[in-house]
Each structure stands twice: as C-alpha cells, then as structure tokens.
Design a protein around this nucleic acid. Sequence first.
DNA 1: TTATACGTGACTTATAAAGTCACAAGAATC
DNA 2: GATTCTTGTGACTTTATAAGTCACGTATAA
Lengths: 153, 153
Amino acid sequence: MPTDNRLPRVLHVLLHLDEIKDPVTSDMLGQMLGMNPSLVRRTMAGLREAGMVSSTKGHGGGWHLTKSLDEISLADVYAALGTPNLFALGPAGDTPDCLLERAANEAVAGALDAARTEFESRIANVTVAQLFQGPRKEVAKHQAKRDRSSHAV
Amino acid sequence: MPTDNRLPRVLHVLLHLDEIKDPVTSDMLGQMLGMNPSLVRRTMAGLREAGMVSSTKGHGGGWHLTKSLDEISLADVYAALGTPNLFALGPAGDTPDCLLERAANEAVAGALDAARTEFESRIANVTVAQLFQGPRKEVAKHQAKRDRSSHAV
DNA sequence: TTATACGTGACTTATAAAGTCACAAGAATC
DNA sequence: GATTCTTGTGACTTTATAAGTCACGTATAA
C-alpha cells in the first residue's frame, strides 16, 4: 500500500490556507499538493467536520480556515483524519491460545504502545501555527536569544 | 497490505525453539504459527544470518537455537528481520521546494522519529528470555517483591 | 537409494491508501 | 432564469508491499 501521507498533506494545506486569506479551491490545493482535487476534498472532509476549515460552493468558493492555527494542535489534525493507523507492524492474531504467542504479541504491542504514546504526546504539544517556525528559523533564533536573556528556557 | 507480523511471529518461534530442544521443522513451525512452511523458512532466514538459529537439512533436521534467549534482545530480532518499516504513516515527497510543505513534513517526521526512538529503546532493553515472564507472571511478582526488600527499583 | 528437510525463484493474493471519473447539488454572476 | 463555478460523494482503478503458494534444486540421514 502506498504510505499514508494525509497528515503532512493536510498540515501543508492548513499552512497555505493561513497565508492566502481568500477561499482556496480544491483545484488549487490539488496543484500545490500534486494530487487530484477530488482527493483533496475527500481528505479535507474530516477537517471540515472537526470545525477547522469550512468549504463554500459556487463562484469564489473553496476552503478557508475557521479557527486560528495556534488553536489547532497536530494531534487535533491527526484525530480529524480519523486517527489513522500509525504502525506498519502489529501483533499476529488476537488473543491466541498459545501462551508463548500471547507473550510475543504483548511484548511487541507494549513497545508499540510506548511509541504511540510518545508520538501522541509530541503532536499534542505542537500547534500548526508553530510549524511556521521552521521556515522562520532565523526569527525564532533571535527570539530565543532574547528569551534567554530575560528568563530560563 | 496485510500488517507486518514477522516480529511477533519469530519471537513466538524463538520461544518454542527454546522449549523444544530438538530441531523443529518448518512444517511444524508453520502449523504453530498458522502459516506456510515455505514462508517460515523465508522469515527465519534473517535470524539464521544473524546467528540466532541454525537450520539443518535432511532427516531429523529443522531449526534450533544457537544462542541463549537471554543474549538476544527484541531489537536484535527486529534488526535480523531487516529493520522493517515501523510506520504506516510518512512524510509526502522528499525535500519539496515549498517551505511550508517541508515544515509540515519535518514536523511529522520529528514526531515519528521520537516514536521510533521510544520503540527502539523499549525493544533494546528486553531480551527474548524475558518474554517468558508474561506466562510466568506469578513467579515474576514474587521475584520483584524480594528485589524491593533488598534494593530500590 | 530413498525419504526428509531446507533454500529460493517465481509467482498469486490480500489490503488499504492513492488516484480517477462522473455527476448531482448548491451558490454567485450575468 | 441561465450559466458557470465549486463542493460532495459514489463507484470505480491503480499502486505498493507483506502474505501466501508452488515447484524444484540441494543437502542430509537412515
């Protein structure tokens, strides 16, 4: 199966929607993302249901933000996509009779759970707005320098 | 694609190989795991190359351990399988021109990296031998009690 | 010599996301 | 009201990859 790219893609979309204040059509988003406009609509449907974006039909219609990006965490976006399966790996069969098989499954499941927890805590503590800090690294650096002179990090 | 079950499966195999001291044929393992003997051989090939097990042909042949299970970490097994892809999720396109897309990718990649690190540290610190502690929970509990009375956890 | 048993190339199958197409329905503009 | 734009969605096809299957060569033990 092709790797699930929806999370980075919709994040990308949100960042663009924040820059372009007018509604953006699925067609334009499709060109930005290199994907079919129909697929854009389908992928964005979850974000609309989650109240992050809104779509309007007809002339001058398209997608626009209905929330500030600093009020949306990456975890919110992940959840809006339906919390897609995170791992390509998994236990074999559910609740097998063999105790050894169960032990093997549980060990793997345990490690995966720990990884999932780490992933979720990471994305829960980053807002989409903060992603701008990548492109604006220099600004952030200077900001951090100023911060350090006034209070500890 | 069906989920990658190789890690729990080969762990299961190793636990059985430790119980049954005689060589076990791929056919028998296939029945235990509910999979084709040919697939068993293919899946076990990595463990053989890693020196964890050995296979012998002909009458009375089959698979047997060449290492103690307490010398094999889950991470060793994972590596022996070729470090299969851990995530069903991933960044879209590599090094895109759009800065916003790159920021989105990096954010996702960062969270995934953190999750992978957590996963790897988990499996690095568990030996296959320790998986027996699941089925032998009661024993482990008493052991832990004794441990606590002598030194801090 | 024969019955096992592994090793492996060359397939087919299964699964889920990606991608495509068509068209109904709503909204703005003339 | 007719036209044009745009979303929403059903019904597909395509793609990627692990799982699974089959066949057969090779090696080993009895």
